[in-house]
Amino acid sequence: MPELANRAVPALLLAGVAAPASSPAGVTVYDKGDTHLEFGGRLQAQYHLESPDAGDSTDELFFRRMRLYMEGGVTEDISGKWQVDFGKAGVSVKDAYIAYTALGPGRLTVGNHYVPFSRESNTSSKRQQLVERTFVGDHNYGTPDRQLGLSYAGVTGPVGYQVGAYEAYIDADTKKLDFGSGTNKDDDWYGGKMVAGGLDFFLVGEPFKKAQGDFARAPSLALGINGFSWKNDDEQPAGTPAPAQQYDTAKGLSADVALRAGGLSVDAQYNRFATEANGSNVTSGLIEGGEGDFRTYAVEGGYMVVPSRAELVAGYQALDADAYDETWTRASAGLNFFLNGHTDKLQATYRVGSNREGVDGKDANELFVQFQHVI
């Protein structure tokens, strides 16, 4: 712990003291009549130090995300967005969709975009309190993330809704339930049909954006429920494992609550997943006896000790799988400095992990320090 603290504190002190909040937005380069064009992006430079109980510590400095996007339209009702990332995960397409708003009260979206599952996943990485997402928003552990398909979404009074259908891919690794978009799939990923939907209930205050941290300080409370069902297309791409070791079906349910009030921001979420492999005798990773039932849950929050400027944050998350001997847990604490709201901020998160991948005593402590700039 002293080693981690000595490295983190000097970096955090660079943030200074008072700055107003702002919302990240791109630069409009053309706006005339119904035609507009906007460019933007985000840069997240991250330092990561990991100290396992067994083995040597490792650290690295890298760009977690380097994203560019363009968004625009030539009519009032039709727009499009394209976003690409050049960060740690390699070059990959993120958003790539066309949106149509003249079909009823909601918006029809066609292309690569977020599946309506998991509040944390649907909260942009640039608006997260902890440097890294917890289990409930991690695509490695059941959350579908972005997929290629179509959806319809809107808000009517205090209720938000979204429903969609997608061609969703899964990585051939039974240690995870790792969903990935077909726009970036590797040779050992296999696809299937997915349907998903969700509801948000805004119980206090006006409908608010999925963004962590309370800058407005006005009381707001929302509840969400959503789910998905995925079925393997029974294809056998080159490089995948034997069909018996592939997932045949996967289903997920999620419930969440979000509270914002007086500088306090709290998100809590519970996910439950039920999977089946093609082979009934498969035992590997998250699968035991051909089935892979597991649960993820997390509580994370923060308080603005200096309004819109400095935020203390903390979180607890867990992955409880039937195939695990122990529950995998992580506890986090950190500090965020906002130079300009979520547009420019410096974050530090210290995370204590226990029983990684369900193995008793496989523990590690981690430090994340990240600077973010959004255009």
Results as ranks from 00 to 15, higher is better:
residue 303 Y to M: 08
residue 243 P to K: 13
residue 235 E to A: 14
residue 365 N to L: 05
residue 207 P to D: 11
residue 312 L to P: 00
residue 356 R to C: 00
residue 46 Q to W: 01
residue 219 P to R: 02
residue 126 K to W: 06
residue 238 A to L: 09
residue 192 G to F: 04
residue 296 T to K: 00
residue 152 Y to E: 03
residue 347 Q to L: 14
residue 288 E to M: 10
residue 348 A to N: 05
residue 369 V to N: 01
residue 284 S to N: 11
residue 345 K to R: 15
residue 75 T to H: 03
residue 178 D to Q: 15
residue 281 N to F: 12
residue 193 K to C: 00
residue 156 T to N: 13
residue 46 Q to A: 12
residue 23 S to Y: 11
residue 7 R to Y: 15
residue 140 N to C: 07
residue 188 D to E: 11
residue 22 S to T: 11
residue 338 F to H: 07
residue 325 D to N: 09
residue 290 G to C: 10
residue 248 D to H: 04
residue 324 Y to M: 01
residue 218 A to G: 08
residue 232 N to L: 07
residue 204 V to R: 06
residue 287 I to R: 08
residue 261 A to I: 14
residue 65 R to Y: 14
residue 173 D to M: 07
residue 112 N to A: 05
residue 84 V to L: 12
residue 307 P to Y: 10
residue 73 G to V: 00
residue 98 I to F: 04
residue 99 A to P: 01
residue 240 T to C: 08
residue 246 Q to D: 06
residue 47 Y to S: 12
residue 130 L to A: 12
residue 100 Y to F: 14
residue 236 Q to W: 09
residue 191 G to I: 03
residue 9 V to W: 15
residue 74 V to F: 13
residue 53 D to V: 04
residue 312 L to T: 00
residue 97 Y to W: 14
residue 364 A to Y: 14
residue 244 A to N: 12
residue 194 M to N: 05
residue 23 S to F: 10
residue 321 A to D: 04
residue 172 A to Y: 03
residue 175 K to R: 14
residue 329 T to I: 07
residue 359 V to A: 12
residue 283 T to M: 10
residue 158 P to K: 13
residue 273 F to P: 01
